[in-house]
């Protein structure tokens, strides 16, 4: 049987500012993940680093250790490869006052 391979949309057309995070994704069946963030509109202001977070329960969160620069132009992509993450993943970023980005965050999971 072919291994499972699923694309999950975590955040679609939401404008992130301040302390922002995607919804949790329960994906313990997957051995690896790639997360993409695409800026759907021109980002406003300085763009922070985003970070992958993991959780034992989908409620309490810790940095997973991977961070990456948010996209700096409309339709630009940012990406992170993730392994060994347990059962829950999300992506989070802290934007400075006046900064924002309208994002499409997608998680590509593979068993």
């Amino acid at each position: 049987m072919l291994p499972e391979n699923i694309t999950a949309i975590l955040t679609r057309n939401e404008t992130w500012s301040g302390a922002a995070a995607s919804e949790p994704c329960e994906c313990g069946w997957a051995r690896e993940a790639v997360l993409y963030i695409r800026a759907l509109k021109e980002p406003i202001g300085p763009q922070p680093k985003a970070r992958i977070e993991m959780s034992p329960d989908g409620i309490h969160w810790l940095p997973e250790g991977t961070d990456f620069a948010m996209p700096t132009g409309k339709d630009a992509l940012a990406m992170a490869r993730i392994r060994h993450f347990g059962n829950f993943l999300r992506v989070a970023a802290d934007f400075a006052e006046g900064s924002s980005c309208t994002v499409l965050a997608t998680l590509h999971l593979k068993a």
Partner: peptide
Amino acid sequence: YSRYTSAMLSTLPHW
């Protein structure tokens, strides 16, 4: 419709 998210495969994990 704009706030919907993807369904997940869950083991119903409880803290």
